[in-house]
Nucleic acid binder design. Structure first.
Lengths: 191, 191
DNA sequence: TCTAAGTGCTACATTAATGTGCCAGTTAGT
DNA sequence: ACTAACTGGCACATTAATGTAGCACTTAGA
């Protein structure tokens, strides 16, 4: 929104298309050329350079867009207020949706200081939530510190990519269930 | 082994160093240049080209090396014979160790037909094992088909990368425990 | 309808990586 | 100690991507 300042409507459309196309292509090949991205988006290579001063800037914009979606999902989950079970599910659902719209790998280009700062903030929020969930008895307390926090992103990412037939909400069902109960059958000898 | 035919000892050392260095660097940046890899391995760029006809061939060799390690781990786990709980743990431990030695991303370059064939075979073995584990009551039977099989690789990969202080065996403890029991606390109202 | 904003296209300079050839020097293994 | 194998370093051609410039054309929006 804020990026599309006093921009003409068609230009804004092109820009959005460029970002989403870029995200998709960069996700499956981080070294995708600007020419290839532009071609797939149906725009001229030159148009990209009119919008972004360099390749780096395009990447940064894609990452910004992804973080916008992620932050929105976190906000919508109300991690600090909603009941832990509800918040967890909503969080997972939101991140899965965000991962599908912006599948770009986060592992690259943490060099961007703005991104690192936003990331730090998000991590703090999630950690605080997980702590609360542990205190309220939703999560086990005997696991290596940070294990659940570290486990969540790849799990959600995996569900986003590999359960294409399920809606974000359904995929979140599977993820949360798997996460909390595991995939092991209850022991026959258990009380 | 078979690759190092009638090769001089120092050449074989260089080759191994080149492969492991290449795997590490390509894992964190798939577009790492041959010059960079060679430099990090302490060899001249020209030496790489004497061993491999092209960049593709170097990549292929790295992938082959990874699959060697993975296949060895699967074999050692004896997925078709050992008790399911034991086999699972040994499998996870072996794959974690392999992931650490050869952290290279498998998602790229499945174009190699030889790799795809080996991959197919491995997948079949693991699927058969998981089916057996389900039949023998180790795993829940009410999950989406293929979900556990799809869940395992990212889990193991994640543990290999993000639990550096734990030995492969310890990391396997955490992974198997998490996988089977989940991270949720038992319900207070549970029987 | 009129203008400014935006696009497509061609051309060009620059950089970086790939892959090859050659030669002098060094080292492994007999 | 001797030879074949191997290496390092330089130079070179080739390819591909980045980033810039200018011009003619189209379209959104007042």
């Amino acid at each position: 929104m804020s990026i599309l300042g006093g921009m003409r409507a068609d230009a804004a459309r092109n820009l959005e298309l460029l970002l989403s196309t870029g995200a998709r292509m960069l996700a499956e090949d981080p070294s995708a050329s600007i020419a290839a991205i532009a071609a797939r988006a149906g725009v001229d290579r030159r148009t990209v350079y009119r919008r972004f001063a360099s390749r780096e800037e395009l990447l940064a914009a894609v990452y910004q867009a992804r973080y916008d979606a992620v932050e929105q999902a976190v906000e919508a989950a109300r991690l600090d207020q909603a009941p832990v079970a509800v918040a967890l599910h909503r969080y997972v659902e939101g991140i899965i949706a965000a991962n599908r719209t912006w599948p770009v790998e986060t592992s690259r280009l943490y060099a961007e200081e703005t991104i690192r700062e936003r990331r730090r903030h998000l991590i703090d929020q999630v950690n605080a939530f997980l702590q609360r969930a542990t205190h309220e008895g939703l999560l086990r307390a005997d696991l290596p510190p940070g294990w659940v926090a570290a486990l969540l992103p790849p799990l959600m990412r995996h569900a986003a990519e590999n359960l294409p037939d399920l809606s974000p909400a359904q995929a979140a069902d599977v993820v949360v269930d798997t996460l909390l109960r595991g995939v092991g059958a209850p022991l026959p000898t258990a009380r």
